[in-house]
Amino acid sequence: MMKLEKKDILGIREMTVDEINLILETAESFLEISTRDIKKVPTLRGKSVINLFYEASTRTRTSFEIAGKRLSADTINISASTSSVVKGETLIDTARNLEAMNPDIIVIRHSAAGAPHLLASLVSQSIINAGDGAHEHPSQALLDMMTIKAKKGKIHGLKIALVGDILHSRVARSNIYGLSKMGAEVVVAGPATMIPRDIERMGVKVYTKLDDAIADADVVMMLRIQLERQKQNIFPSLREYAQHYCLNRNNIKRAKDDVIVMHPGPMNRGVEISPDIADDPNYSVILDQVNNGVAVRMALLYLLSGGNE
């Protein structure tokens, strides 16, 4: 087995197919640990992982914390608010202080795109980007790829539709890179206000109508709509959005019969996804995503700690 040669996990854009496969295979081997009675292995005993979250997060932070604990690492959670950053300590000073305490890995989430890159350039520890602005969310894309691979047996050749606010979505960007690298056909859909300019150059096809995007899709990934975008006139109302972009029993028939439905969470039931679909085990793999998320994050912590050495 090869070794991950990276110091940091900042984005899927910089990852090779071999690296993605290594992470997914390592994650698959970790799945079993979470099914044990005693869900803990001593692999990372004595290592410390800091979760530095500048943005609210329940799922991702908990997932990283559980991942660390299952590998016996000491995990420390820091919730910082960006408002205090503007007035108080800079990210650079925070980074230097954390570095002086000599942790092994720092997991960072930040509302400003590029903040993990700044951190990575300053400290010797490994940095994992747990989401930066609208830029990347690599562990999410990896758990999505792991889920698709588990359900479909492959990623190559699948048609995968990402639907919703692509403009503001780091999940979309990381998945576009990852799924394209793995050989999938990626299409995106949303009203034109939610499609970032020149996204075609990322190798995706763009649709403005849900029905066109999900036709014959193997995988449909719905993205969360944030109500505050309404104020920026990205969309006029949740009502109208739901009428045209909500995945439901009716429009999903346009996709392949064995289509799987994904959502990075948290869901707005009845807005981008109808409860019927979200709760239907024939379609929804949303909780598999969450389960795989722990395994993927275990794999990242393990590989960055020099696993396989």
Binding site: R170, P196, R197
Partner: peptide
């Protein structure tokens, strides 16, 4: 408003709000 760099491909991949 809210933009941080030129709107276009690089703003899109960097996830930074664009200034058209």
């Amino acid at each position: 408003a809210g933009g941080l760099m030129n709107e276009g491909y690089y703003a899109t991949i960097l996830g930074l709000p664009g200034i058209p």
